[in-house]
């Protein structure tokens, strides 16, 4: 079949390539080329200011992974940030979505309230939170003082700074996941839950045994998107802590930004970007694999 292609088949095939060529060319120039360029840069000692580049093999990676390097600390911080943010975001979103699909009076207003931070500028959100988390005059510590609790200096404490950023970011972005879960929950036929209830299942069993498996494809999709988003966090770090105190909130993208634009070293910045790409790819593949096993609707 393949060896003796008719002229018509060839013309069809050529026409097909012509039709997809704008997309392919766009992909090659704007996606593949930068990706390859980053990999090439990561093998160079490249001074952005002087423009001088030298091939140095894997030296950038060796420096990044040397003992006590800032990069290793950064990598650990990114993983801690992801491990804190993803479960908190997804569990809170599921909880809120579950509440917001109940026939409660004024539920639409609550949905708007939960979604409003998503359409707010990330920088404006972070600036407001920076004032709220102010060690002495912030509203958070003033509220805690009302119940005789002395709040920490949230953004300057190596222990609390990361926790604060995770919470600020979850509150900013959880609304989007709530909307996705709400849509998924509303698509589950109510008869399933009714039948289970008639068979004696309580509400917890209905949720975990009936509803959750039904919306598992959405849960996995939300997990992947939230995970990738958490690895790419930059804006909140930049505004709230600038990577401090003592580099305790220095995460991968902020590290990359610093290497490229403050130190004028795109070579080591690209090394960081390659590692970020690989980490995101690995975790996504892991989740994808998990998705197939968890979701009976998937093949």
């Amino acid at each position: 079949m393949g060896t003796q292609m008719s002229n018509l088949d060839r013309q069809d095939r050529l026409l097909g390539y012509i039709f997809i060529s704008p997309q392919v060319i766009g992909y090659l120039i704007f996606v593949l080329y930068p990706l390859i360029a980053i990999m090439v840069f990561s093998l160079q000692d490249y001074n952005l200011l002087s423009g001088v580049r030298e091939w140095i093999g894997f030296e950038n990676y060796q420096t990044m992974f040397s003992e006590n390097s800032l990069f290793l600390k950064t990598l650990k911080n990114s993983l801690v940030f992801t491990a804190g943010l993803v479960p908190l975001n997804v569990i809170l979103a599921l909880f809120l979505a579950n509440l917001l699909t109940k026939p409660i009076k004024g539920v639409t207003a609550f949905r708007v309230l939960v979604f409003a931070p998503v359409i707010t500028s990330a920088v404006a959100w972070a600036i407001v939170w920076k004032f709220m988390l102010d060690g002495e005059n912030g509203i958070i510590n003033q509220l805690l003082a009302l119940v005789n609790i002395t709040g920490p200096n949230w953004l300057r404490s190596p222990t609390w700074a990361m926790v604060s950023i995770i919470v600020v970011r979850v509150l900013k972005n959880v609304g989007l996941n709530v909307v996705l879960f709400t849509a998924a929950l509303m698509s589950v036929p109510p008869q399933f839950a009714e039948s289970a209830s008639i068979d004696g299942a309580n509400s917890r069993q209905v949720f975990f045994r009936i509803t959750l498996p039904q919306i598992m494809p959405s849960v996995m999709m939300v997990l992947i998107v939230t995970l990738i988003g958490s690895l790419k966090v930059f804006d909140h770090i930049m505004v709230l802590t600038a990577g401090g105190p003592g580099n305790s909130t220095m995460v991968l993208v902020y590290y990359i930004y610093y290497q490229a634009f403050q130190f004028s070293e795109p070579g080591s910045a690209s090394g960081g970007a390659v590692v970020l790409f690989l980490v995101a790819l690995f975790l996504t593949l892991l989740q994808w694999n998990f998705r197939k096993r968890m979701s009976y609707q998937e093949t």
Binding site: V24, V40, R53
Partner: peptide
């Protein structure tokens, strides 16, 4: 054709970044 294009892009990148020598 796609494979060919990919190889061309890679070679072009490698050559460009190897010999480009700043301002």
């Amino acid at each position: 054709i796609l494979k060919g294009l990919l190889i061309c892009v890679f070679l072009f990148s490698a050559v460009f970044f190897t010999f480009a020598n700043g301002s």
